[in-house]
C-alpha cells in the first residue's frame, strides 16, 4: 500500500513456522493417543503392528525422503537462477506425492479387502487394543495422506508462480514456505513409519 511495499522474508518464514507448529500439535493429539494406548495395550499393538506391511511403509518412507530432497534442492536451484531445473525438481516432487498416494491406496485396499477397517465386523472381533491400533492407524495415515495432497497442491501452485516469474531468484519466499510445508509432511511420516510399521517386539 502507498509506497510502503517491502517484503519481510523473516516475518513470512516465521509465520509459516508458526503454522507448522499448529500442524505438529494437530498430529500431536493422535500421537498422544498412540502413546497412551501403547502403554495400555503393548502386546496387542505388537500383534496388530505385525499385520502392516513394512514394504509399503518403508517404500513410502524412501519416496517421501527423496521428495524432500528434491524440494530442498529446488530452492537452491531457483536462487542460483536454474529455473528449469527447479521446475523439474518440483514436478518430481509432485510425482513422488502421486506415487505415495498410489502406494497408500494399494495398502489400504489390501487391508480393507481383509475386512480391517473402522467399524468392520472383522475388526470388532479383534482384541480391544488391536481395534484401537487400527482405528488410530487409519486416522493418522488418513490425515497424513490429506496433508500429502494439500502439500502437492501447494507445490503445484508454487510451480505456477515460478513459471510466471512471480517467484524468482530475487523473490523466492513463497517457494521456501511451500517447501517448509512439504518437509513437514515428511517429518510426520518419519514418526508414523516406525510407530506403526516397525512395532514388532
Amino acid at each position: 500500500m502507498s509506497g510502503h511495499v517491502h517484503k519481510d522474508y523473516t516475518g513470512a518464514k516465521f509465520g509459516m513456522w508458526l503454522f507448522l507448529f499448529t500442524e505438529v500439535l494437530l498430529f500431536g493429539g493422535l500421537f498422544l493417543l498412540y502413546a497412551v494406548y501403547l502403554a495400555r495395550y503393548p502386546q496387542e499393538f505388537i500383534s496388530a503392528g505385525k499385520e502392516l506391511n513394512v514394504w509399503f511403509g518403508g517404500g513410502n518412507t524412501l519416496v517421501l525422503l527423496t521428495s524432500s530432497l528434491f524440494v530442498a534442492i529446488s530452492i537452491t536451484a531457483l536462487r542460483r537462477g536454474a529455473k528449469t531445473l527447479c521446475l523439474r525438481l518440483l514436478g518430481s516432487t509432485i510425482a513422488c506425492a502421486v506415487i505415495f498416494m498410489v502406494n497408500k491406496y494399494f495398502e489400504w485396499n489390501a487391508k480393507i479387502s481383509h475386512g480391517i477397517y473402522p467399524g468392520s465386523d472383522h475388526l470388532k472381533e479383534m482384541q480391544p487394543g488391536e481395534m484401537v491400533f487400527f482405528n488410530l492407524y487409519y486416522l493418522t495415515t488418513g490425515l497424513h495422506g490429506l496433508h500429502v495432497i494439500i502439500g502437492a497442491l501447494v507445490i503445484a501452485w508454487a510451480m505456477f508462480l515460478i513459471k510466471k516469474d512471480q517467484v524468482n531468484a530475487d523473490d523466492w519466499v513463497i517457494l521456501e514456505n511451500a517447501g517448509l510445508y512439504w518437509h513437514l509432511v515428511d517429518l510426520i511420516w518419519i514418526f508414523v513409519f516406525p510407530l506403526y510399521y516397525l512395532i514388532l517386539h
Binding site: L33, V36, Y37, R40, Y41, E44, P118, G119, L123, K124, Q127, P128, G129, E130, M131, V132, N135, L136, Y138, L139
Partner: peptide, 12 residues
C-alpha cells in the same frame, strides 16, 4: 465409527 473413545472398541 473409529471408536477411539468407545470402550467397546478398546477406547477410553
Amino acid at each position: 465409527g473409529t471408536g477411539l473413545f468407545d470402550p467397546a472398541q478398546g477406547g477410553d
